[in-house]
């Protein structure tokens, strides 16, 4: 294959990791350990994934293994969102529904409209790229929601004190959180081709596919990612905000709360 990197090429690419390590050391960021762990972990994980993918996408392997893999991606994404915003009760289940919905909607469009055929080699990568991007926005939404409600507790309680229901009292914050969580993906889509050449397209071109075909695949994927991100973010934020108020419309105790209890 023209794009064959080989282990030698991979080793050379580590030079930039060394640069990152040097920056961390020089600026005393204390990220060296995290950098080394992330590089090693990514290496091992992707090697295992590569081997497993080769088995799963083999035309002789039953499709059920691909579906199981997709389910694993959704569950892992939900667990990650939950871990990043532990202040939200039962966030795992909200994130499971949110990421699951993105996978379902994405698959319905991708396979229902015949953009790609349903095969092992399409199911797993598409779920990975859709849910992976949606999960990132879901994390931003959940984390930012907790922070914003904590920082702006005074405003939320001023609204509650006027007799506003919790969803109305938190609406300006939820709107702002959704904008924050969605804007990076919107900017990514706007900057397509101008600022960066996204992963799927780059990979296809490096692997020798005609750039025009690679562009079409990438565009389809970017639009799916944008829709999936909006779906996951909205479900996560709207689900999480309900968990952060009691049934009698009180804001629960949150980390970093500055409420005066004098």
């Amino acid at each position: 294959m023209e794009g064959d990197v080989g282990y030698g090429g991979l080793a050379i690419s580590l030079v930039l990791v060394a640069v990152a390590l040097a920056i961390s050391l020089r600026l005393r960021l204390r990220l060296e350990r995290e950098l080394v762990v992330s590089v090693a972990r990514g290496f091992v994980q992707l090697l295992i994934v590569g081997v497993a993918l080769a088995l799963v996408i083999d035309p002789g392997t039953p499709l059920v293994w691909s579906w199981l893999w997709v389910a694993g991606i959704v569950v892992f994404a939900a667990a990650t969102v939950h871990r990043r915003a532990p202040a939200v009760p039962r966030l795992f289940w909200i994130a499971l529904v949110a990421n699951g919905a993105t996978a379902v909607v994405g698959f319905a469009i991708t396979f229902g409209l015949g953009i790609f055929p349903i095969e092992g080699r399409t199911l797993v990568p598409i779920a990975g790229i859709l849910v992976g991007n949606a999960m990132k926005s879901g994390i931003v939404a959940a984390e930012r929601l907790v922070e914003a409600l904590s920082e702006q507790r005074a405003e939320v309680e001023a609204r509650l004190a006027l007799g506003q229901p919790s969803l109305q009292a938190s609406r300006p914050i939820v709107r702002s959180v959704l904008r924050t969580a969605l804007s990076p993906q919107i900017e990514n889509t706007k900057g397509l081709g101008l600022v960066f050449l996204p992963g799927a397209m780059t990979g296809l071109i490096l692997a020798g596919v005609d750039p025009a075909d690679a562009v079409l695949v990438q565009l389809a994927i970017m639009y799916l990612i944008l829709g999936g991100t909006a779906t996951t973010t909205a479900i996560t934020a709207l689900g999480a905000v309900r968990r952060l108020f009691t049934a009698d419309h009180r804001l629960v105790a949150l980390p970093r709360s500055t409420r005066d209890t004098g």
Binding site: A154, A161, L162, G163, P172, D248
Partner: peptide, 20 residues
């Protein structure tokens, strides 16, 4: 009903919180 109660028993806070 907490919402009805809060409209009947209004509150002014320590620091003035105005909305946008």
């Amino acid at each position: 009903d907490p919402l009805e109660l809060r409209r009947e028993v209004a509150m002014v806070f320590q620091r003035p919180v105005t909305f946008a």
